[in-house]
Design a binder for these strands. Sequence first.
DNA 1: TTCCATGCTTA
DNA 2: GTAAGCATGGAAC
Length: 957
Amino acid sequence: MSSTLVLGPESRLVLVDASSFVFRAYHQSLNQDPKYNVRPSDGLPTGAVRLFFAKLFQFVRDGAAGVVPTHLGIVFDKGSRESHRRQLFPEYKANRSETPADLRPQMPLVRAAVRAFGLPVIELDRTEADDLIATYARNAEAKGAEVVIVSADKDLQQLVSPRVRFYDAESGSKGKPGYRPERNLDVDAVVAKWEGLQPDRIGDALALIGDASDNIPGVPGIGLKTAAQLLLAYGSLEALLDGAATIKQPKRRENILANAEGARLSRRLVELDCAVDLPVDPDALALPAPDGRRLVAYLKALELPALAKRVAKELSVDADGVAPDADLAAASAPVPAGDGPALPPFPATEPDAYGIVETRGQLDDWVAAARAAGRFGFHLHRGDGGALGLSLAVEPGRAVYVPVEHRAAGDGLFGGLAAGQIDAAEAWGALAALMEDPEVRKVGHDLKGASKAAGRLGFAIAAADDVGLMSYALESGLTGHELPQLATRHLGGAAPDPEVLRGHGRGRIPAESVAPRAAAPVVGQLADAALRLWAVLKPRLDGTPAQRVYEELELPMVPVLARMEATGVRIDRAALGHLSRDFGSTLARLETEIHGLAGGPFQIGSPKQIGDVLFERLGLPGGRRTPGGQWATGANVLEDLAAAGHDLPARLLDWRRTAKLKSTYADALLAAADPGTDRVHTTFSLAATTTGRLSSSDPNLQNIPVRTEEGRRIRAAFVAAEGHRILSADYSQVELRLLAHLADVPRMREAFAEGVDIHAATASDMFGVPVDAVPGEMRRRAKTINFGIVYGISAFGLSDRLGIGRQEAAEFIARYFERFPGIRDYVEGTKAFCHEHGYVRTLFGRVCHYPGIASGNASERMGVERQAVNAPIQGTAADIIRRAMIRMEGALLKAGLSARMLLQVHDELVFEVPAAGAEATMRVVSDVMAGAAAPDVDLAVPLVVEAKVADDWERAH
DNA sequence: TTCCATGCTTA
DNA sequence: GTAAGCATGGAAC
């Protein structure tokens, strides 16, 4: 026996982080046949201990990382919950879940296994295994021994030195998800893995990166690469935090400054304590020769015959002559216990809160209950192919799901319906009668989406409220208005996203294949959330100006937009296909040229690589940096370089323009168009902007190119159906007109009343030149400043736009304000109003909240002030075109016209009109748009509408 | 797989 | 200087 062997220069100490090993063994055991994971005689769980034993046996025999140990330390964790780190930071490892119930009874068995090998169990109250390992490692290192640390915990890589290596054993099985090959890290390997950081800087890196599993805060958004980059630049965490103000990337700088305390705390949490009391003398870790009989007795007690046989054979023991260890044989499985904390009132926790309807009788009962209540929350659950069912909430915490069109699991094309659903015609019939009943109020979210799905089923949704739009009318600018956000904000609980039902990754399934019983609690909660939100928001809305906005500018838009989306706009598939191929060959040609000019291939789509090529490899002058510290390669920069005679930047601009047109427009529109009708159906959002503008997505049809010749070829592919034409009508200078009204500028009002060129008139007033003698450059400057005012102007922005000095720009603005004092009053008055109230209003009473107006950060506060100055202008324009859209269908109907509204692009409406009625439609559309502010708002300037008819959108625009 | 920065399209 | 959405590359998770 060598148990007296003193730890010294000839020794090889292997330190095993037992707890991490046991956890890994446990999870590995879960992937195996459950019958191998329990003791047959009484069901005592043994899966983790079996794998742990096998691994320990391997360490004793073969060592780790090629090191056969003379000393072996098996170190356990006994202090995560009360360690000194907990005192520093109560949340430390607070998110660790409880030890699994079937692992807990195995822990004593694991310790027994260690003792069966003749080794001490190393553990110490209130001390984490990491600190014990660190102390043993430093101790042995000091004595000249070779050390291998076996752990899955990367924190321990801090200890790596010329004498200390880190070994992370293979986990999982080859070819299966989560498999990791073994890793054997010496100093060089650690430095490579940590992106150039020496082991003694790993603690700094860990403090920045944080660790979700240990609840170490770190700095959000910083990962290994960024941390290493920063630490190599600054030398250490302390130096980095002291010099954080000099970090170039603004986001990163603010982020680190804001989280500096968290990083300091994290640094202390990840610091290893190399001087804890050692519960076992290091010399006592000397590895004894294994006692085969004792090991076999252990394995027999756990009823692991295969392992017992193997150990007996390798250690030349007669297994038959060994009796099971009596104490262990008597150990039995304890009964686990424990229950979670009380849940919040939403979502409801009663087991029958979110039920399911399976019979006609039940359905009739619920419909009757909804009618009796006079209002109910609902969620029309939809899959790719349309409505799947409807959930109803008749009172908070009580909802039910009526599944109708779910498919049976595993059935594809020809699959039948899922079991337990009422006949579709019957179910939809009863539900449609309820949804169309004007006497019962329906409360939902995304009413537009629900209305479209209902429309496909042949019914409308009458007397409905949309809690998302209610929230938008009340709190635009304060929060998002999606159901989960509203639930968190107002109900104190999280509403589910129905997408969770489909799972993710490879197991993702269509919504219609989800079992009705699985869907019921989720969609039931959505109906419940809608009803509860209504109960919160309705009292806040009633009797306020926001109520009128909701009722007159939000809700009436729902059916209008639903019809526009359902109608879609026709594209010329052949033309777009031709364009795509054209763009493709242009790109291929440009790519060759660019690579040639650059002296080698690179990702042309990568701004980072472009910067490297232009400013590093080719050394072009005049490079600027982006806010993120990279080389800026935006169009401005490339244009300057191209103007200086460089070919490569010019080709890059061509490439970017062409790539944009191909991928964002030609290809995306072809992919989006309905293959049967060649029509593209966008989705308009009513509640996506702070100002009241709409937004368009999937695809966005509000940013179709128009400025360049090539781009207009895309727009020309938006065509009318046979026998029809495209009508485009847009407001002329609407925002400047509104500025003239809001700021009450007599000269501007007159110019608009007389129909003279507003920018020339501005220039004339500013520089005392007759309107018809204003030079082009002067007019351009006036135009820029006019737009600048609408956008909340700053001398900085104006100087950038005009290419003049900051000082000159400031003088320019001063002169403008001198000539148009009303505008200065408007700008200053609007800022003051926003500072006082935290919001601004449009002329129609829409509120736009700007909580950031009170920011202590001057540049941020000025940014919010610009938003506040712009919002009444942009928002009033948005309100006006909404009014036009709401009135449009009635006006066309009244005139006996059958034009269909297709798109809204902020100041423009696009229609598809029967060729014969184009002229008459143009008059009606123009009249409705021009008169849209009246009667609520009496504008001091006329609204002018320009309309045109053609065969495609490009020529109509 | 998800998120961020960059760049580009529109009003 | 305002308001949006989307493609791409690259890093984080």
